[in-house]
Amino acid sequence: MLEVSRLSFSYAGRHGPVPILKDISFSVPRGGAYGVIGESGSGKSTLLRLLSGLARPVEGQILVDGAPAVRWSGKMRRRVQFVMQDPYASLHPLKTINSALGEPLRIHGERDIPARVEKALAQVGLDASFRFRFPHQLSGGQRQRVAIARALIINPEIVLLDEPTSALDVSVQAEVLNLLKDLQEERQLTFVLVSHDLAVVAHMCDRASVLHSGSIVETLEARDLRAGNCSHPYSKELMASARVGLPALEVEQ
């Protein structure tokens, strides 16, 4: 469904080009979930900007269902959508939820907007009373649900998730992750999930790459992630951090 080959990105600095991403390749089958594990400065945000068409790669290409994503207009736009990390920043502060959810439909000139907005809200577990509220009247978890509904309302095939739960409380994180899993199953969505949280990635994804200073250092299957089977020293370090406190949580079933 999504194929990324030899993607590179750099920006022009004072002393020549500054490389941000080097030679990134991976592919995700339809309905699959691919994880990208990285910390700040690893280039993960840039990768998502490239995948969503917000920035253009310097080299390499992105294939969506076999078609190169070069001109991001109309049809291609609808196929790839984006859910961002901070639910407080990703909603327009002066627009009601109704307006935020209707906007994608209006942009693409669709009909039957009120009914579809209501349906989209219901799908993310929010009742109709939320329609005419403003973002500041919603909690972080509710806003993230709205952001998910907005991304899904034009029926994309690929959804890019940028740390979708790192700004949320753990109990809300569980709700949002469950919701994403359900929606993925229901609609055969293809996910690219970027996160620094190995447990979240292992829970959501089938495969994941570890991104470190702009390069993929290692690609792991979910079961390797769980078992801690990795070879690169950086992955091992991440793995060690993710396992802190686990012994204390061992539950005798």
Binding site: L54, R78, Q81, L91, P104, A151
Partner: peptide, 17 residues
């Protein structure tokens, strides 16, 4: 540079819009 403006671009909104 706000997130909600980036999202609008991803949604395909034109610049005048």
């Amino acid at each position: 540079r706000a997130d909600f403006i980036s999202i609008l671009k991803v949604l395909g909104a034109s610049r005048p819009r």
